[in-house]
Amino acid sequence: MPGILSIVERAYHGTIEEQDDTILWLSHMIKNAGGDVSVLLRSNAVNYAVKGQDASGLSIGGVALGIPPTLDNDVVALSTAGVTVYVVEEDLSDRGIGNDELCDGVTKVKRSGLAKLFDDHDAVWHW
């Protein structure tokens, strides 16, 4: 049985922190530390799996943010590192997000399948 299911639902924390999104980052750190973790993107966080996000060009008071978040790349990196990244299918369609817009490496799950997904993990961390 996989270990931890980390649920991310709150999305876009303000762009200017290195670890934005903080929970994707933390999940990657746990994986790197040897943890067995899966990530479930639900609610607005399903938008993290959309290709082509671009937060470049932010400059405030003449201070530029040189390395903006690339959340779609972070999702792909999680998947590449061996973390299964689930996205809730209905949360995508509610937001008008089509299959052709999704980045590689995500697994769709229906809302009706969430109970089983919870049950399939030892622990559920609902951030």
Partner: peptide
């Protein structure tokens, strides 16, 4: 990373 803090952004605003 070269990641500015909020304090650094605001210091820039004070310069402006």
């Amino acid at each position: 990373q070269d990641h500015p803090s909020t304090a650094k952004f605001i210091a820039g605003l004070f310069t402006l």
